[in-house]
Design a protein around this nucleic acid. Structure first.
Length: 491
RNA sequence: GCACGGAUGACAGAGCGGCUAUGUGCGGGACUGCAGAUCCUGAAACCCGAGUUCAAAUCUCGGUCCGUGCUCCA
């Protein structure tokens, strides 16, 4: 089945197509680097990471561009407030961005252009728009005149050009705008702000023009996918349509518009003023970053997601079980597995049936991802496979078969949960022995021996108090058929 | 006001014409001194009203409620 994507402009799922066969040119609006990234950013870039991964997995050669907005009002404000040079603020936050995204196992885009490196290109496009009478020069900068291309209005939001009056009327008086719908291409310098030279005097670029300049420079006049949070729909993305299409005379500038849904906190919009604002770092102090990733892809990317304890709890449990089975499979497999029979779901032989089920889940997984990147459904298939695999690995199957099956499970999980969904840590990390274990091993084994004696004497109170003591050491004990097993608590 | 999107079991959340979603939680069972984990198993849902259809969470129309956007925002 072919990939279908929900296109915001066409308002429906459409068959995915590319301008150039086999190649995908994709641009996703990046962050304004005035602060640390929050949960909403995590959601957005994880969503498009999945798009990125699935397209590559489907055989496309993807060119993925994601920008940094490294000059704007908020950065200037932050700089004035803190007394720190704006360029230092920007550099620090870009570093932090990479760290955060790496921790969430987000694959890097191919290029991360910074808008201040494209001022020349922005000036060129702005001049072209002036020449074509889509823009005009005023005292306070250059404005795009929306009424010059009314047919392009509302392509993403469906809003009627006459309907938007909003609170903008008052602002027209304060600015050089001729019309309240117009938006800035170039902002004339204000005292104390960083500036660049332009034909219209010193100043800095407007916000929308940067994405047009950067996407055009790397991807050309028309490209396949443009993504971002759904808050960017208007005005940012509509402005890009105006700028790009009026400048080049070619339409559509973007073939597929993709927008991800927002993250709410306990039912409320996440915002600093409500005090329910979490950075990625905040939340990663509470849970493993991959658990957060699990939680965020456990909903369709377009739906709003409500972040709360329950969600993280569920994610932690499911993700934990996934890693448990993956680890068990890694420890059970061998390097030269015997060849496995062909899977068949209707077989009475457990191994054959299980192999058949895994095969079927792999098919459903692909169908789900092809259906507008339905990661929720894909995750359900992974959990189904985990359950099935766990069952077989715990069974008393003949060991040659079991280790061959384990190899197959490892391959299956690494392909789906790992490569596509990005939920698996690498093998070394997973199998690494925590150094703390060696530090306390002797002490723990002594306590376990005491506990064993107490249990043999059926002195349950003593046995339980030893278990409490172990818990306080940070060690959990689980009794199994093969005797007690212990592990470090937390993580 | 205008625009866009929603409303599915206790909760989260897929499905979008006929087939058990899935997970958490809950009930029963196996295993357990207890606990935990795992496995088996059970109960449980489609906002309301009309219509289309042999058949509707799924399509159409009309309500109701909710969220978001309307030039700061992923």
């Amino acid at each position: 089945m072919a990939l279908r994507v929900h296109d915001t402009r066409r308002r429906e799922k459409v068959e995915f197509s590319t301008i150039e066969a086999g190649k995908v040119k994709m641009y996703v609006c990046g962050v304004t680097v005035y602060d640390l990234c929050h949960l909403g950013h995590a959601r957005c870039y994880i969503a498009f990471d999945l798009v990125h991964r699935w397209l590559e997995h489907s055989g496309y050669d993807v060119l993925y561009i994601q920008n940094f907005t490294d000059i704007d009002d908020k950065i200037i404000t932050r700089s004035i407030e803190s007394g720190i040079d704006w360029q230092i603020i920007v550099d620090e936050n870009i570093e932090a961005y990479y760290d955060d995204m790496d921790s969430l196992n987000i694959l890097r885009a191919d290029i991360y252009p910074r808008c201040t490196e494209y001022v020349e290109e922005m000036i060129t496009i702005t001049q072209s728009l002036i020449d074509k009478e889509h823009a005009y020069v005023a005292d306070d900068g250059v404005w795009f005149h929306v009424e010059s291309a009314p047919e392009k209005y509302g392509q993403l939001t469906g809003q009627n050009i006459d309907a938007v009056l909003g609170g903008a009327g008052g602002r027209v008086a304060e600015s050089g705008k001729r019309d309240h719908k117009d938006f800035a291409l170039w902002k004339a310098a204000k005292p104390g702000e960083p500036t660049w030279q332009s034909p219209w005097g010193p100043g800095r670029p407007g916000w929308h023009i940067e994405c047009t300049a950067m996407s055009m420079d790397h991807l050309g006049e028309q490209f396949d996918i443009h993504g971002g949070g759904h808050d960017l729909l208007f005005p940012h993305h509509e402005a890009e349509i105006f700028q790009g299409e009026c400048h080049t005379g070619r339409a559509p500038v973007v073939n597929h518009w993709l927008h991800n849904g927002f993250v709410n906190m306990d039912g409320e919009k996440m915002s600093k003023s409500l005090g329910n604002f979490w950075t990625i770092r905040d939340i990663c102090e509470k849970v493993n970053p991959l658990v957060l990733r699990f939680a965020l892809i456990n909903a369709h990317y377009r739906s709003p997601i409500d972040m709360n304890e329950q969600l993280l709890h569920d994610a932690a449990r499911n993700h934990g079980r996934l890693l448990e089975v993956y680890k068990q499979a890694l420890l059970t497999m061998n390097d030269n597995p015997v060849s496995l029979p062909r899977g068949d779901v209707s077989s009475a032989i457990p191994l054959v049936k299980s192999l058949g089920l895994l095969e079927k889940m792999a098919e459903s997984f692909a169908l789900a991802m092809d259906d507008d990147f339905n990661s929720r459904e894909a995750v359900a298939k992974v959990l189904g496979a985990v359950r099935e695999a766990g069952k077989v690995l715990d069974s008393d199957m003949e060991s040659e078969d079991k280790s061959a099956f384990a190899s197959h499970v490892v391959e299956w999980l690494e392909e789906h949960a790992g490569k596509v969904l990005g939920l698996l840590p690498n093998r070394e990390t997973l199998l690494a022995v925590d150094p703390r274990i060696e530090e306390i091993r002797e002490q723990v084994e002594k306590l376990l021996a005491d506990r064993k004696a107490a249990r043999e004497a059926k002195d349950w109170d003593a046995a339980d108090s030893i278990r409490d003591a172990l818990n306080e050491l940070g060690v959990g004990v689980v009794d199994t058929a093969d005797g007690p097993e212990w592990h470090l608590l937390n993580d």
